[in-house]
Computed example of a mutant assay.
Amino acid sequence: MKTLEFEGKSVEEAIENAIRELSVKKEDIEYEVLQQPSKGFLGFIGVKPAKIIISLKSKSNKAEGKEEAICSNAEKVKAIDYEVLAKKFLRDVLNNMNVMCEIHAEDKGDTLKVNLVGPDMGILIGRRGETLDALQYLLSLVVNKENKDDKYKRVVLDTENYRKKREETLIRLANKLASRVKKSGQSITLEPMNPYERRVIHSALQGNKLISTKSEGEEPFRKVVIELKK
């Protein structure tokens, strides 16, 4: 008899997830608990869901048809696995932060894009995106820990189109400071930035014939230096 594995915050929720996904009644299934749920460190880091194995009780023709449906649904569940994983992790984190919002996830190839939609998203962005970057980093750790393909899954977490707005702001800043360097002849060192923001600055000025850029220092205090080409 074919079996499938399902997860939930509790054993009961895992059973409900299985019933809903497979369109069966509770009395038609048997289950075995593989893992009891755990809240993890600080209530969200290292959270472990309840895991169960589901199988059908009957061997009738109807049951065999159900088993075929299980196989079909299994492929669908597998296809959205990263999306489900991301939503569950973020929902647990956001609940601990008392933040209510919608979580939209889209898994495309080697990139998982997640967008948070709700009121007062500034608390999730933080100062210059620090909170959003931290959440993205944690989500990336969780997703790639469960990655069964042994291929790195790039995670992009955004809200209120912050990433694009921040990129546009950095490009304007880079061009403004480059003009200042041209006029004064003096190099300018920017404040510490994360790798993504440093790449935006470098990229914005890489085609400038008079200006060059470089990064100096150690993480997390690494900075971009804008200077005249020598």
Rank of each mutant, 00 (worst) to 15 (best):
A105M: 10
S58V: 04
K59S: 14
E191Q: 11
C71N: 07
H104R: 14
L210A: 14
D133G: 06
I123E: 13
K176W: 06
L124S: 04
L205K: 07
N96T: 13
N208E: 14
D133P: 00
L94Y: 10
L42C: 10
I211M: 10
H104V: 09
K76Q: 06
E216Y: 09
T3Y: 10
E5P: 00
V181S: 01
Y196I: 11
V200S: 02
R198N: 15
Y162I: 04
E191Y: 07
Q186R: 15
N98P: 04
L205N: 02
K209W: 02
K78E: 09
V225F: 09
Q206S: 10
I188G: 03
K153Y: 08
S10D: 02
S215W: 08
S212A: 11
K26M: 14
A105H: 03
I226G: 01
L177N: 06
L157G: 00
K62Y: 05
D149Y: 15
R198F: 11
I45A: 08
K165F: 05
G43M: 11
K2N: 13
K230Y: 02
L34S: 05
G43A: 06
N95M: 07
N208S: 08
K39D: 15
E64L: 09
P220F: 13
K48R: 13
V224G: 02
E16V: 15
L173D: 00
E16K: 12
K113H: 08
Y162W: 15
E5V: 12
K87F: 05
S58R: 05
N161D: 15
G126M: 10
E191W: 05
Q35P: 00
E13H: 13
T131R: 09
D110T: 13
K148C: 13
D133H: 05
K108Q: 13
K2I: 09
V200N: 01
I125H: 05
R199K: 14
K9R: 15
Q136F: 01
R20P: 02
V33E: 14
Y152Q: 06
D92K: 03
M97N: 11
E30G: 13
L22K: 02
K9N: 14
K153F: 08
E27C: 06
Q206F: 14
K113E: 12
Q35T: 05
R172V: 03
I45Y: 11
K78G: 01
I80G: 03
R127F: 02
T169C: 09
V117L: 15
M1T: 09
K108W: 04
K164S: 07
K183R: 11
L124H: 05
K2T: 12
L173Y: 00
E12R: 15
E146N: 11
L141I: 06
D107N: 10
F44I: 03
L190G: 02
T213N: 14
N73C: 07
E218L: 12
K176E: 06
C71T: 08
T159D: 06
K214P: 02
R198W: 08
K164G: 05
E106P: 01
